[in-house]
Computed example of a mutant assay.
Amino acid sequence: MTSPPLLVRQMTAADCGHVGSIRVRGWQFAYRGLVPPSYLDALDPAEDADRLRARLARADAGASDLVAEPAGTGRIVGWAAHGPYRDGEQRTEDAELYALYVDPDHLGTGVGHTLLQESLRRRAALGHPRMFLWVLAGNERARRFYERAGFRADGAEEPFQVAGVRVPEVRYVRSLTVQAPADGSPRRLGRPSEGP
């Protein structure tokens, strides 16, 4: 039996409960062994949903939240947030992928790839030359996923602490501009291999 097509749409306040649950399950799956288990076990999807609703109500200038759901199911299986790159309090001409989480039961099904591609497409359409993202240095699965999508670590690192444990982040970047081959013929950005 074939899976229904995946629909990507803007997140609404009504989606925040589902997204909060995906974020918490995503943290508990992806960061086990990187951050203290007591911290992961104490994460509360309802609190996370409240933070998402508050952020959505603030209407952060230029930020966009997308959700993915298999057509006809009404079940959200992934979430991505993107917007202008944040350099401290400043926004730059570049874009940033703020977050990308997939329900752990749907890893490897193309949900993450679809959300990432739509985020890249939307930011390129807005004229951003590059997209940046930050990922935990020890999150090898996510790093491989982004590398397959054309992102490369640029050498920048940020200290990050969770419950007193140092878990540094590394920055990745990808061009959003279309580059013409040497013969001058037009070329679209390549479609990377399927991700988690």
Rank of each mutant, 00 (worst) to 15 (best):
L56I: 09
V165C: 12
G155F: 12
L189P: 14
T114G: 10
R130E: 00
F151C: 07
G78M: 06
D65E: 11
D94V: 04
L115Q: 11
D105H: 05
V8T: 10
R32P: 01
A149R: 01
L40W: 08
R123N: 05
G88W: 09
Q28E: 02
L66P: 04
H113G: 14
P181D: 05
R9T: 11
A142S: 14
G150I: 07
R9K: 14
V35G: 01
Y146D: 06
A13P: 04
T92N: 03
G150H: 08
A63Q: 09
E157G: 03
G83A: 03
E69C: 12
Q161A: 11
D48Q: 14
E118M: 04
H128D: 00
P181I: 01
T92K: 00
L6D: 11
L34T: 01
A124I: 05
L126H: 00
A61Y: 07
W27E: 02
Q179H: 02
G72Q: 05
R32Q: 07
R122I: 00
L136T: 02
R122P: 00
R166N: 13
S175T: 15
G110V: 12
G108I: 12
V167N: 07
Y39E: 01
Y31S: 00
P168I: 07
W27D: 01
V77T: 07
P104H: 08
V67S: 05
G88C: 15
E157I: 02
S193W: 06
S175K: 11
S21I: 02
H128V: 00
A68E: 14
P104M: 07
D15V: 13
A13S: 12
A14Q: 10
D41L: 08
P129A: 07
H18Y: 04
L136Q: 03
A125S: 04
L7M: 13
E69Q: 13
L66K: 01
G110P: 15
F160L: 08
L115K: 12
V8R: 15
P196E: 13
A59M: 12
V24Q: 02
Y98P: 07
A95M: 08
G195R: 12
P5R: 13
F29W: 05
P84E: 09
A13L: 13
R91Y: 04
R187P: 02
A68G: 09
R187F: 05
D87A: 04
R58S: 10
D105N: 00
L176Q: 07
H113R: 12
V162T: 10
A63L: 09
G33Y: 09
S119N: 05
L40P: 01
E147I: 04
E194C: 14
I76S: 08
R91M: 05
H106M: 13
L52H: 15
A180C: 01
E96C: 08
A71S: 09
H128K: 04
